[in-house]
Simulated scan of single mutants.
Amino acid sequence: MTHDARFEDGKEAPLNLGAMDADDLKVIAALAQDAVFPASEMRWDRKADRFVVLLNRVRWEDEGRARHGTERVQSLLVFSSVQKVASQGVPQGDADTILSLLDITFEHTDAPSGHVTLTLAGDGAIRLSVEALEATLKDVTRPYKAPSGKRPSHDT
């Protein structure tokens, strides 16, 4: 008797990563690069001091892409201890705007406090003022074929 393969059976398991310093955040930034998300999928919960984005990220870590093509997966990018959120070049009130994440960086102000900057395509940016750097990136769906069928590329 044969059974269909399950996502959980594969070697390529869902990501669940944490970052507590700038070096850790570089790993999350690399894995989240070129993620896209509607502006409506960002939330700042002031009471919980948490900023969350539901991303559609490229599975850069996917070793099987030659076999099945480029995949994306929905992932939650969560920042804790967020005291303030500011944005530039992000349309307000247009929930259908699709944003593309280019990079995530951390800069200390008064250690361990600092600013996390999410750099977006088109000169947009979101800056989070945090008491301390605490971030997670967690895959929450099964991978799916990228609608374009292509991996993003960057001219240098």
Rank of each mutant, 00 (worst) to 15 (best):
Q33L: 04
D110M: 10
L25T: 02
D96C: 03
V73F: 13
H115Q: 06
F51M: 01
E107M: 08
L31Q: 07
L128P: 01
M1A: 13
R50E: 14
A132G: 04
V82D: 06
S129I: 00
L31F: 11
L55H: 12
M20A: 11
K145G: 08
A39P: 02
R151W: 15
L55M: 12
P91C: 10
I28E: 02
L118R: 00
V78G: 02
P143Q: 05
G69I: 09
M20Y: 14
Y144Q: 04
L25Q: 04
L137N: 03
W60P: 05
V85E: 03
P91V: 11
L118I: 05
A32F: 11
L15V: 08
H68S: 15
D49R: 13
V130P: 02
L128C: 00
D139C: 04
G122C: 08
D103Q: 09
T119C: 06
H68F: 13
F51Q: 01
H154S: 13
D4R: 12
A32H: 07
P152D: 07
R43V: 12
F7T: 00
A125W: 06
N56S: 15
G149P: 10
G149W: 14
D94E: 15
G69N: 06
A39H: 05
S113V: 05
K84W: 14
V116A: 05
S87E: 13
E8A: 09
N16F: 13
Q83L: 15
H108G: 00
L128A: 01
V130R: 01
D4I: 10
I126N: 02
G93I: 10
D45R: 02
R57P: 03
L120S: 14
V52C: 04
